[in-house]
Design a protein around this nucleic acid. Structure first.
Lengths: 261, 261
DNA sequence: CGAAATGTTGACTATATTCAAGGCAAGTGG
DNA sequence: CCACTTGCCTTGAATATAGTCAACATTTCG
């Protein structure tokens, strides 16, 4: 991925918006995404305000924020999270390229969750009322938004099953498999040479409802058993079968072809 | 609630469909639900196939089922769940009157979760392609479906926070408060005399990712402390403040006014 | 009235947390 | 260039929360 060594120094946004037209969005070339009609692309294009570039570790949406716009994650990784007042944090799900962000805090409501970047990232920004405009002007795209929302819910469902009913080993195995599959679907080589893995162990712990220490020990155990390897910010699957058995996951698990807003 | 002693004996469906018109649906009288235009009601009416009555403990949608229709829960309680192959079960969320069911298993996909009744219940049945028809024929109702889906996701988000980061006591307190608020919003008296509580301790355990025994002990502890009382299938709040402090919940938490499909 | 489901409690065990300490790599500033 | 800090990873030991096992009480229901 020719990710520019983009100024981790440049503070908030910077960079002139050499925003690509939606029709030329490189994501659309991927088999993961549906083809959309010209009219639909024009609609999306007309609602898009600009690109937003954020460095690693920045907050895109603050918990409790009231006026957040809508975004599509165009490049990079991020995550949604909630925290308790004493600081305990739960990561709700990870966001990869193509994920649509902000449907939850509908109406003038406060965002019930925060969003933070895991890598340098680029977002397409839509104004707040675009959600309604999409439905009004294109039933198809409206349907797609519903689809994306339902799909994201099913990811959270999966996490809840993990956190509620799987052991630490099983949770880790599940997370590695699911993230690998999602990341691989965004690459041409389908993950032969590993996939990017920008999470720290703290992120893994916060996503799985485990402590940092226990996460570390479990991760090492699986790695020593030869099930996977993490290094230099990449994840390599060494024994998918064993991981899948641990995770109790079946099917090819290839992410379904999906719309892109 | 004039719930007929409906034949728990009558096996699957039985009962002639004395189906009420959507416009006369008693739910619409509640302040919890938005007012809808006549055209919207007609649309919903035209897509509705029939009423479905199920007794307690019946499966509405089986995990992995492929052809499930859409439903609106009209009366009674139910829940969504997932299981691992060795039987461990996680309840994803509870369904109360007005909840829309089945958006997740979009397309010809298999349902990723099951749905089971907690009480005798009545569902409005919509044919499979209604989801698209709703979007096509009414942007407003399409938007509403997106809203409902996003809203349900935010309930699952809340559960995930609980199960991932709250202690057993805190989880129970959170569940009691949230369920109480939802149930109270469906009653005229807003829960002064308690609300129905059809869950067994096993359901509570499965929703919170706890064992049955530990759930029992924690529930008893809170009850002995005078925070709540459960009896004869009803839940009474005795000390909402203490519960809310335990749960780390703020705001009036009154459920938002919502659309009804 | 007996069977089955649900609720309750105590004793024991285990998984996961907390505490503590140290290593390594990268970035910062003198 | 080199101390120094900071963030992330790693490990061992002590502790605690929650799980498992077992038994019995209570309620529901056929």
């Amino acid at each position: 991925m020719p990710q520019e060594t983009a100024a981790a120094t440049a503070p908030p946004e910077g960079v002139p918006p050499a925003d690509l037209a939606c029709a030329d969005c490189p994501l659309r070339a991927l088999a993961l995404f549906q083809e959309h009609e010209a009219a639909e692309l024009e609609l999306v294009q007309s609602l898009k305000r600009r690109d937003l570039r954020l460095p690693v570790g920045q907050t895109l949406i603050q918990e409790g924020q009231t006026d957040a716009p809508l975004y599509t994650l165009q490049q990079g990784w991020a995550f949604r999270y909630k925290t308790l007042s004493d600081g305990r944090r739960q990561i709700l799900n990870f966001l990869l390229a193509g994920d649509f962000i902000g449907v939850q805090q509908k109406m003038g409501d406060a965002a019930a969750h925060g969003v933070e970047t895991l890598t340098d990232a680029v977002f397409c920004v839509f104004q707040r009322d675009s959600l309604w405009e999409i439905h009004r002007r294109s039933p198809t795209m409206g349907f797609n938004v519903t689809w994306l929302t339902a799909h994201e819910e099913s990811l959270v469902d999966d996490s809840l099953l993990s956190v509620g009913r799987r052991s630490a080993e099983e949770r880790i195995a599940t997370l590695l498999i699911l993230l690998f599959k999602r990341a691989a679907a965004l690459q041409a080589d389908a993950g032969k040479g590993g996939v990017p893995f920008p999470l720290t162990q703290q992120h893994v712990a916060d996503a799985l409802g485990l402590s940092l220490v226990h996460t570390n020990k479990t991760l090492r155990k699986l790695e020593r058993r030869g099930l996977h390897h993490i290094g230099e910010g990449r994840l390599y699957m060494r024994d998918v079968k064993s991981l899948a058995r641990l995770a109790d996951l079946y099917g090819d698990g290839r992410p379904p072809v999906r719309p892109l807003v």
